[in-house]
């Protein structure tokens, strides 16, 4: 309307600079992410015999799901992965939120120190974390048995990383220890962005302390919690490094810590005398991709769209 009124033509020049600025990122992303992704999906439809590659259709997926051994390993890995995710959702994220709430309290002293200290493990390498915790929990030289002994609870100590029933949970908690800084930081930022007027209005209405957190702050940070859940989900179902560095590629004892990442690694690259099978490996990788895609879609369409957003 306005353009008509001023008499200038409605046609705008093509804004080439947008394309130019997008191009490097797009090209790099395509080359290192999109093409390999489709390459993997394609490879999962092939198989080889006597060094000759042939199209196998969905045969690899049939093997993965209906061959007794493959499917047992796959479901075991998927369940372990789910349990790994449950630990993070049930422990890491609530603790992260709690720490953020404490840190954002104006009366807390040294909050910058705590913030940094809690965030530091996140920037450590998996290998360092895996090795350090292996040493801490070592029944021979570890400090864990001695510390428990000091408080008279030595009887509670068991070689956690070596017991089938505890190993995965222990590794989950180690991972929580390492990454609790991330939800803490994100929630902390979200809490800081809540305008003071809202808090003051709440206080005028007599809502303070815990009920203020539950009724005012928590609803306002729900979108951030949603994002954290997605990040946790994607991170956990892609996890590999910690298990590999602490338990090795066979994810012992008795495959009790085997997750999709280690299963994929063993299959794709092989291990010890086992030679790698890129075709079955790609099949597992494709399944991981589909699982993560489904999870993220469910989240985006079923949950994120229903969250109420508040604009200030």
């Amino acid at each position: 309307m306005t353009s008509d009124a001023t008499g200038t033509p409605a046609r705008r020049p093509i804004r080439w600079h947008i394309l130019v600025f997008l191009a490097p990122a797009l090209l790099v992303y395509t080359a290192v992410m999109i093409i390999p992704l489709f390459g993997t999906l394609q490879l999962s439809l092939f198989n080889a015999e006597e060094h000759r590659r042939f199209f196998a259709g969905l045969d690899n997926f049939r093997t993965l799901f209906f061959d007794q051994r493959w499917s047992a390993t796959f479901w075991n890995a998927l369940w372990n992965n789910t349990w790994f995710f449950i630990i993070h959702m049930a422990v890491q994220n609530p603790i992260g939120i709690g720490l953020a709430a404490l840190l954002s309290s104006p009366r807390l002293r040294f909050s910058a120190f705590y913030r940094t200290a809690i965030f530091i493990p996140t920037i450590l390498s998996f290998v360092v974390v895996g090795f350090a915790w292996k040493l801490i929990l070592s029944p021979l030289w570890g400090v864990a048995p001695n510390l428990l002994d000091l408080v008279g609870l030595k009887s509670l100590f068991t070689p956690w990383l070596g017991k089938e029933e505890y190993a995965l949970t222990t590794l989950g908690l180690i991972s929580v220890w390492q990454f609790v800084g991330i939800p803490m930081m994100l929630i902390y930022a979200a809490l800081l962005s809540i305008p003071d007027e809202v808090i003051e209005a709440a206080e005028c209405d007599g809502i303070t302390g815990w009920s203020q957190f539950w009724k005012i702050k928590l609803p306002l940070i729900l979108p951030s919690i949603g994002i954290i859940s997605v990040l946790t989900f994607v991170g956990n179902f892609n996890a590999f490094d910690l298990i590999y560095s602490a338990q090795g590629a066979l994810a012992g004892p008795n495959y009790s810590t085997d997750i999709l990442g280690t299963f994929l690694y063993r299959t794709f690259f092989g291990f010890q005398l086992q030679t790698g099978d890129p075709y079955m490996g790609s099949t597992i990788a494709s399944m991981m991709f589909l699982i993560i895609l489904t999870g993220v879609c469910i989240f985006l369409f079923a949950i994120q769209t229903r969250l109420r957003r508040y604009q200030f």
């Binding site: 292996k134 929990l137 070592s138 029944p139 021979l140 030289w141 048995p145 068991t158 070689p159 956690w160 990383l161 070596g162 017991k163 004892p253």
Partner: peptide, 10 residues
């Protein structure tokens, strides 16, 4: 004790 978590270098 704790041989379940005892590694090769241990």
């Amino acid at each position: 004790d704790g041989f379940e978590a005892q590694s090769y270098p241990d």
